[in-house]
Design a protein around this nucleic acid. Sequence first.
DNA 1: CGCGTCGTTGAAGCCGCTCAATAGATGTGG
DNA 2: CCACATCTATTGAGCGGCTTCAACGACGCG
Lengths: 254, 254
Amino acid sequence: MSRSQVIDFSKIKISCGDCNIHELCLPRGLELQDLEQLEKVIKRTHPLQTGDYLFRAGQEFQYIYALRSGSIKLNLMDEQGNDQILGFYFPGEILGLDAIDKKQHLCSAVALETSSYCAFSFSNLSEICQLVPGLQNQMLRLMSRELTHENELLLMIGTKNAEERMATFLITLSSRFHQLGYSAKEIKLSMSRQEIANYLGLTIETVSRIMSRFQREQLISVNRKQVNIKNPDVLKHISSGSNAGSGKVQWYKQ
Amino acid sequence: MSRSQVIDFSKIKISCGDCNIHELCLPRGLELQDLEQLEKVIKRTHPLQTGDYLFRAGQEFQYIYALRSGSIKLNLMDEQGNDQILGFYFPGEILGLDAIDKKQHLCSAVALETSSYCAFSFSNLSEICQLVPGLQNQMLRLMSRELTHENELLLMIGTKNAEERMATFLITLSSRFHQLGYSAKEIKLSMSRQEIANYLGLTIETVSRIMSRFQREQLISVNRKQVNIKNPDVLKHISSGSNAGSGKVQWYKQ
DNA sequence: CGCGTCGTTGAAGCCGCTCAATAGATGTGG
DNA sequence: CCACATCTATTGAGCGGCTTCAACGACGCG
């Protein structure tokens, strides 16, 4: 029992029941005795610092990760070095599910700020799923939700213009923050303009210009990474594409 | 035992073991006795005709579908009627997995030609997963693969230009056909130009122009929906983006 | 044959990218 | 504490790839 400044994370008692994001996370809906099963396979870890990798593309797949605090970006790179950010992750969300098939991570996950997480051994998890129907269903639901998110991202990038994407991004972020118990109006971005641009399939200049325009039009106020949503209704209107009668792309309506 | 011309599909004995796409499909890797479990929950059906819906957005989620023959497009529509094709599906591939979370289909699946399929009751399937570890793992793998496909699509649309997308589309199609035992060189497209364009985030005119250009450059020969790959190597080269030294977008390389 | 659908091709315009310069923030060392 | 370097973000000017608009051709079907 030393008073060492270094916390020994392997000694910390892990309990999903006490976790404040319990209702958002993997154990959602599990019974108490099932929870204990789950807690047995959690690996203790140090928190990540900004820029640290949760996992890298190419690494062997071993764990599924539940984010407890902070934020993480997931990105995919091809042989030419083209890099695409696939999503930003916040507390309660699960990372690593796409590696199940190839037993190897194809994406990389990088901390955007100091972030803590739980790691679940996948092989153990999949054994427990065999015993706990609720957990199996939760796993399937989580993967299904992941699919839904990507579907919506594809729909956005395929059909919306730059202004609509930017508005959608802000509104979605606001709503996710709200669900986590933070303010829906005052948002602290943990990602850079470059990362926003990449995620939305735009350039950093376009993102910057549109944010400036939104500010001129009193929809938001921006100060570096601090964004205040001043007119969510108009933003939602823009994000839905309803305001464009002119240059709007009329993609393939049947 | 009538000689009725109408086949009664409910009487047909279903056996995954005899199915010719058995090794590509849901039962892949299952033991014989486990297969029997699986076969019990297959719903018998009539084949779909071109334009028929396998399922529609909004419908209650009840079945997971395995395509046996033909091809199907999956698309997602937003409130404004913007429509995005998320993927084209061929024999052995599974549809409907993204509906698990919301217990409701968010996408629609439409037959591009006469297509037959198997329908598995999801609630029964998920019970069997509890008993058959191999099936549970196969389900997870399938969803993971689906995620991987969407990731790659996002990477393509986010980083590649029109020519590269078109080349990637043709090469990918060729490879999938080859895996199914068809010719990798002579491809019969079941989707329209409009559907290709939508899928790739382009317009029909751009798709048409690029296919004409590819034909002029002797990379393919096109006759309506019949496409012959004449120079796969150069196509692969284009699809990887290696040929562009000029106007190539240099997205956010770190 | 007339009609509708689908696909091709041309010309022109626009949205978002590229290039470039500047400002602001952060960090470092003397 | 300030000069300097570095990195991120902003803003402007110009260009280009893809879209838009339009006309035409090819094919299938009644």
